[in-house]
Simulated assay, not measured.
Amino acid sequence: MPAPAPSWQTGQSTWNGSGYESLPAAPPINELPDEWVENFGLSQAPLQQPIVDLPLTDPSGGKSSASSIAPIPERQLPIGAAISEGATLDEPPLEQEVVRWYQVPWRWMSKGWENHAEFGLDGSTGNAETLAIQTGLEMKRKTDRYTLALDIDYRQASAQNRTTEDNARLNLDYDRLLGDSNWTTFGKLGMEYDEFKAFDLRLNLNAGLGYYWIRNDNTNLVTRIGAGASREFDSPVDEWTPEAVFGLEADHKLSSRQKLKAKIDYFPTFEDFGDYRVVTDVSWESLIDNSKNLSLRLSVTDRYDSTPQGALANDFYYSALLLYKF
């Protein structure tokens, strides 16, 4: 049996002046002092080997270890590419919109609608003092299944400080398509007030069938036929009168800034088709300022009543109005 190697060859010996002495073995690095265990409750824990042993490869392509791991896939996009392409994280929950119960009606009236308020004014002073104003509101909601439209107009004019015109009109129209066809059912509500006519308020309610000859984002053409009744309150004949209704309505976008609209409704009574009313509206709109949603409208309106009861049978209006869309 070979002799043991001198202690100085192990690197654990020291010179004491006359010879080499062996040093005591160093404590293991994974052992803790006894006072740490007593004071802090620490337990001995031996060092662990690495969990993942990455294989080594040589230039020839061979692996120095039998174990292997899948290579890390290359990045498909350079750093910062997601930011440059506008990629964003999901919206934080704290930034999600919260809708209160009292906001629901206005959201329904403002989203999906084409709305505008209109105003017109003209007058003169000097030999003749005149003033005329016209205001109105139009709201329209069109979907794949139905169209709902509200139209309110008010006109007032005076000459020499005397009122010569004071009237208002409200129309509510509803169309709903029947399945996938161009046929539609409609309902119509109309109210008219005029200080210079023989009634205080005229009310008409009508319903029936219609047919869309054209219906798209640029052009609409529909004809209607139906029945209903009308009444002139506080007039010489203050009672409900059955009547029919025949209507034609069309609108067309000439360009992204111009639109034409036309509408005519004929209301004959069932007892005598010679007793009838006709309401005609034609208008042209042109966008003035897209950033401020301002448009100009030129319109003409004719209202004819075959039985005016002492007043003129025909009322013809023309106007230039400034529209603000919202």
Rank of each mutant, 00 (worst) to 15 (best):
L172D: 03
L172T: 12
L172E: 04
L172N: 05
D173Y: 12
D173A: 13
D173G: 06
D173C: 01
Y174P: 04
Y174L: 07
Y174C: 01
D175N: 11
D175C: 08
R176K: 12
L177E: 00
L177K: 14
L177D: 02
L178S: 03
L178T: 07
L178C: 02
L178G: 00
G179L: 08
G179A: 12
G179D: 01
D180E: 08
D180K: 15
N182P: 08
N182T: 11
T184I: 11
T184R: 13
T184Q: 10
T185F: 12
T185S: 06
T185P: 00
F186S: 04
G187Y: 08
G187P: 04
G187C: 10
K188F: 14
K188S: 11
L189V: 12
M191S: 07
M191A: 15
E192M: 06
E192T: 14
Y193K: 10
Y193A: 08
Y193F: 13
Y193L: 05
Y193R: 15
Y193I: 07
D194F: 06
F196E: 02
K197M: 07
K197H: 05
K197C: 01
A198H: 11
A198W: 02
A198Q: 12
F199Y: 11
F199D: 05
F199V: 02
D200V: 03
D200C: 02
L201Q: 11
L201P: 02
L201H: 06
L201T: 08
L201E: 03
R202V: 04
R202Y: 02
R202L: 07
L203T: 14
L203C: 01
L203E: 02
L203W: 07
N204M: 10
N204T: 10
N204S: 15
L205K: 10
N206D: 01
N206S: 13
N206M: 14
A207E: 05
G208W: 10
G208K: 08
L209A: 13
L209V: 14
G210M: 02
G210I: 00
Y211M: 03
Y211P: 01
Y211K: 04
Y212A: 04
Y212R: 01
Y212N: 06
W213A: 13
I214A: 11
I214F: 14
I214T: 07
I214N: 10
R215V: 09
R215G: 06
R215P: 00
N216S: 09
N216K: 09
N216W: 11
N216T: 10
N218I: 15
N218V: 14
N218Y: 10
N218S: 12
T219N: 11
T219W: 12
N220W: 13
L221R: 04
V222D: 05
V222W: 06
V222Y: 03
T223C: 01
T223K: 02
T223P: 01
T223H: 05
T223A: 09
T223E: 00
R224T: 07
R224H: 04
I225C: 06
I225N: 00
I225F: 15
G226F: 13
G226D: 03
A227D: 08
A227M: 14
A227F: 15
A227G: 15
A227R: 13
A227L: 15
G228K: 00
G228M: 08
G228Y: 01
G228D: 05
A229S: 10
A229I: 04
A229Y: 08
S230C: 05
S230A: 12
S230T: 10
R231V: 07
R231I: 05
R231A: 00
R231P: 05
R231K: 14
E232V: 05
E232K: 13
F233G: 02
F233Y: 10
F233L: 06
F233K: 15
